[in-house]
Design a protein around this nucleic acid. Structure first.
Lengths: 196, 196
DNA sequence: ACAGGTTGTTGACCTCTGGTCGATAAGCTA
DNA sequence: TAGCTTATCGACCAGAGGTCAACAACCTGT
């Protein structure tokens, strides 16, 4: 029997890809590692060789999705902070609309209160918060500022989910709404936007 | 052997109570129905008699928590809409700070992308949206209005989570921030607040 | 007080799941 | 082509979710 051997990195990537296609469509406890292995044309033992537990596998898949999201929404280096925000949001919404299952999986996903899993989505939000803080030139935001920006990110996520669910609003309008909201939040929390 | 029999409603309530204490502390796949049954001093078969599947059990526990949250944050009937909003938020934050594990479980909880589970948290948000729409005298909000209010609810949730996590902001300040944000969102989306 | 029926409750059982481990064989190197 | 490294697998295990027929509390009528 001819068994094809792949380089570990390749196999790992393939398994993650299979994982993604499953995780974005079915609940965590609704499929078995056996099924994942079958779908990947691989033994279950190999799957567990690459990912020690099911939760690790789940976490790895989510992490990859988060990495992709961050890469695709990277800010434009040369632009002003307002332009960065607008362009970032446009890319964000583009990603959301073209990868909605993965997006939903990351945000709403998770296995109950597993801190490791929750930490992945949280890391994503933190990364976005860092980007914003950097763009604004803030090092250690005051509590009110942090809560405000954090709340704004929650607003972006909720609005995005509603947006892709209903699909009855132009992307540009939503971007405008969110940019305006951000500007307002920044003013309200007493954060001084940097001079262009 | 003396086995005590309870009325179905009582037993069910007891099981839900046990479920809550577990769900708020451990991930969904991190405990067994056997353990739940043991903790409740009951056979696993009985547990499955009351709740046909583990997910049903999970859903029932979350639903109860949502019901409690809605009951404890019920709006003040006689007040103006602005007062209602402020009082509602105060009660909401009181609930959040005193039941943070349950709150986190409902919002961040869920079993991957299980629509039934996700629908419970979504139902909670919908109920809050309905309250707000009613208070504003809106029947069928326009898309932009719906997205805006939905985004605001996401803001409330994210800010609340950050608030209880860090605990470095006065409740009154957060309420003020959220009320101001709401007023602003309402104006922006072109919703006319009702005459007192 | 007791017989009888209703039904809350259980122990035993089954299948499948997550996870482990020693053995195998594919492919590179000399 | 021999030999070594290691990616891969088959077989196994404990425990999970879930089922079912049987049991025994409690209520009712006499």
């Amino acid at each position: 029997m001819k068994v094809l051997r792949l380089a570990p990195a390749t196999r790992r990537a393939q398994l993650l890809e299979v994982g993604r296609s499953i995780f974005t469509e079915r609940p965590y406890d609704d499929f078995s590692m056996d099924q994942v292995a079958d779908l990947a044309g691989v033994s279950k033992a190999l799957l567990f060789h690459y990912f020690p537990t099911k939760r690790d596998f789940y976490a790895a898949v989510l992490e990859e999705a988060v990495g992709e999201m961050l890469a695709l929404t990277e800010p434009e280096p040369g632009a002003t902070s307002e332009e960065q925000l607008q362009i970032g949001l446009e890319r964000y919404l583009d990603y959301v609309s073209s990868h909605s299952p993965a997006y939903v999986a990351v945000l709403r996903g998770g296995v109950g209160a597993d801190p490791k899993i929750a930490g992945i989505a949280e890391g994503f939000r933190q990364a976005m918060l860092d980007r914003i803080s950097t763009a604004l030139g803030l090092d250690a935001p005051a509590p009110a500022q942090r809560v405000a920006v954090r709340g704004w990110i929650g607003m972006v996520e909720a609005a995005s989910l509603d947006w892709i669910e209903h699909g009855d609003m132009a992307r540009a309008d939503l971007v405008q709404l969110l940019v305006a909201a951000f500007t307002w939040v920044v003013e309200l929390a007493g954060i001084e936007p940097p001079q262009r």
